[in-house]
Amino acid sequence: MTDLPASTDRKLGLVIDLDTCVGCHACVISCKGWNTENYGAPLSDADAYGGDPSGTFLNRVHSYEITPEEGPAQLVHFPKSCLHCEDAPCVTVCPTGASYKRSEDGIVLVNEDACIGCGLCAWACPYGARELDALEGVMKKCTLCVDRIYNNTLPEIDRVPSCVRTCPAGARHFGDLGDPDSDVSQLVAARGGMDLMPEQGTKPVNKYLPPRPKQDRAEDLDSLAPYLAPVAEDQSGFLGWLDKALDRLPGARSDEEMS
């Protein structure tokens, strides 16, 4: 049923470190790969090698520029996938019961056999976490790699979502956010983890760690500049004579004209 569980035993989810993410999109590719080759309908592409490629992705990395009042701008890479909300609006709008939130671990899933592809759940999601697959006609979304995390045939180190396992920067963390003593909960507490669009009232389980204030800014470097050894601007000796001689040749342009 599309009633949301009153509470879930665990709140499995991701913690994404915006300070560490380098925007390499490796999580996007590993997600696409795992979820195309494994559980459920594959994530299709249209015109993949043509002029107007588009396809289904469960995880997409945006990039944002932050311009503070003073100081230089900062670039933040921003991976976005399903936040497995406690108050998931996508679940309650579903007319068929295909969308549901698991009471045991809080994962929001789609039963693809019951999905009529009406798209209303994607309308109800403020995060753009759900995409209707153009080829299969069913709604696709992040499963938190439910077919990995409980999969005893995989080595234990691989029993985390594919994006987490792949991230080369260690910017993605997986765990139980309902347990205040878990690693992810402690990380959220230590780094001021935040909700996306809290005013939408979705109570997302996934948290984002804000980028740390940068210490090594250009102004800081400038304060050391007077102490740096000056670079010679006027050449002397043989090289100085050669430079001037070449300048005097017909057709030669001076440095000022070149710049």
């Binding site: 996007v28 997409r60 945006h62 990039s63 520029e65 932050i66 933040v76 804000p210």
Partner: peptide, 19 residues
């Protein structure tokens, strides 16, 4: 700003889309 949670340090602008 609320969508990204990045409003505190300064003005947020979408720099590059995912695709």
């Amino acid at each position: 700003a609320s969508a990204t949670g990045l409003g505190a340090p300064g003005r947020v602008r979408a720099f590059e889309p995912p695709h």
